[in-house]
């Protein structure tokens, strides 16, 4: 428990089915990692949304600075050739 008396915040990632990535779905408050998994189960998988859970302390995440967005992301805007869209994808490929 932090000094403020609140439980720490954990980011929750859910894998919806085998072969897919874990995706960020939200966050929970919990005393420790084990309890964060239980809280994530109750909060985010009660309607069969997933088959695997990850939790990560929110404090461990380093985020990019919104002020740097132009420098970081704008240069990619006119580089359309980086998209792998110049060849047909076979119909039976479901996830790419």
């Amino acid at each position: 428990m932090s000094s403020s008396g609140e439980f720490a915040l954990w980011e929750v990632f859910v894998r919806t089915r085998s072969g897919l990535n874990h995706r960020h779905v939200g966050s929970v408050h919990a005393a420790d990692a084990k309890m964060a998994i239980e809280a994530a189960r109750d909060t985010y998988t009660r309607r069969m949304e997933g088959i695997s859970l990850w939790v990560v302390p929110s404090a461990s995440i380093t985020a990019s600075d919104p002020g740097d967005a132009d420098a970081l992301f704008a240069p990619a805007e006119d580089k359309v050739y980086r998209h792998p869209t110049f060849y047909p994808i076979p119909d039976h490929i479901k996830n790419i």
Binding site: F7, H29, A30, A39, D42, T43
Partner: peptide, 11 residues
């Protein structure tokens, strides 16, 4: 006490 516990008890 918290939303997470509320859901846990209700589940």
């Amino acid at each position: 006490p918290t939303l997470e516990i509320d859901l846990f008890l209700a589940n």
